[in-house]
Design a protein around this nucleic acid. Structure first.
Lengths: 226, 226
DNA sequence: CCCAAATGTGAACGGAGTGTGAAGGGCACG
DNA sequence: CGTGCCCTTCACACTCCGTTCACATTTGGG
């Protein structure tokens, strides 16, 4: 079995011990660079990130792992009870979480359940909305079956928008969540990318991205229920 | 929001209380048949099944819910620590689980994460008053199900008024709380926006916004009766 | 019934916000 | 070291809508 990636390095003793007892091989790393160096040829089986001691480092690593061409899955987060409120805005950064201090058997049960789910591919690698389809594995986009030739940023922006249909985002929010939290640049950059996306979507589908004046942009129609 | 299906009936008090506090509507049922009878037209938002007291009944229900043409998702399982070993062979019956006794905030965090993953996103923040509904995430408004095409200021003003039904606001108060504390401009601006709002609400609902002579405006019914 | 204050109404102006075309420049690639 | 891509920025054009004003209408008190 491929090893699990652990954060931080060294990992908490009780975590290492639980994995050893369960027969799960693992390697630890403190950042994305160290994770790349330690990564075996077969790749990682998944990752377990402890966010209780160094939340910033933990979430930064999660973000890096998810930004890869082939996002690392499954990703299990270990948090303390006081951090539960921080999870809501980071839902896309992990697949499951476990409260620390954890019971070894709960950890193992969650790992098994995660492997079961990812093994059957129940987690969608596609983002779909109407005639639009994004293949997250091959980095390809298509509408009405016809492929779209998108650049990297166009693809990332469209992926984010299509993942949250109906919701309005300000330019600042888009910059921070698509370009990155540390990005500093003009907000008009968003406009230009929106324009090119509309152009490539074609006249018929350009209205998939709507302008909400003095607020930002919205993808698709509103969902009143769920 | 559609209600959650709970098992068993009656559900454990701490579960019902946690959901009530979190604002999640729910209905309980003891088996698939009762669940079908209690199901609203909009369907279930998901299910929470307690497996600690009656494991057989719980897993039977899970199996039935998953055998539907449209399998019920997401499904959260509540189990005691001693049952962790039983989960391995039932991975396909649930999407996530939570150990009992649970912390209310962990339960809520898991629900939010489940809704996020199943593509429904977290439940939208709504402002409702009778037939009027404002979706704060999508910046859209509707009355009697028909969407209203509001401008930014109209939306902000209506949102503020509808958030405080029955209360009277002076024009100065509205200017400072909707337009901003530092705003300096004529108070008649409010009148014009009120007029446009009434027009867009339609003749039938124009009286949702009432004029209180020499005071200001009020949304909805007075607190002193009709 | 009259008057004054308050509010409703229609229209016009002007500026903020957004669309658009084009050019600059960083980065990967050969 | 050149070359092409594309992210970013800028200047300009244009639309929209927030604001204001003049005037009409309503309200309530004397």
């Amino acid at each position: 079995m491929e090893p699990l990636l652990l954060f931080p390095d060294p990992p908490p003793p009780e975590l290492a011990q639980a994995l050893d007892l369960g027969g799960y091989p693992w390697k630890a790393a403190n950042d994305e660079l160290a994770a790349q160096r330690a990564e075996p040829d077969e790749g990682w089986a998944g990752a377990i990130v402890c966010a209780d001691k160094d939340p910033d480092g933990a979430f930064t690593l999660c973000r890096a792992l998810r930004k890869r061409d082939a996002p690392l899955e499954p990703l299990l987060l270990l948090v303390s009870g006081t951090q539960l409120g921080d999870l809501e805005l980071r839902d896309e950064l992990f697949d499951d979480f476990c409260l620390a201090p954890f019971h070894p058997r709960e950890l193992e049960a969650r790992l098994k359940h995660l492997f079961h789910r990812s093994g059957r591919g129940s987690r969608p690698e596609l983002v779909e909305y109407g005639e639009l389809m994004l293949n997250l594995e091959t980095y390809q986009a298509a509408i009405e079956g016809k492929p779209l030739d998108l650049t990297y940023m166009e693809y990332e922006l469209l992926k984010f928008l299509a993942s949250h249909p109906g919701k309005v985002f300000t330019r600042e929010t888009l910059l921070s969540r698509v370009w990155g939290y540390e990005y500093y640049g003009g907000a008009r950059t968003v406009d230009v990318h929106i324009r090119r996306l509309r152009a490539k979507l074609g006249e018929q589908h350009a209205n998939l991205i709507q302008t909400v004046r003095s607020v930002g942009y919205r993808f698709g129609q509103s969902r009143w229920g769920t």
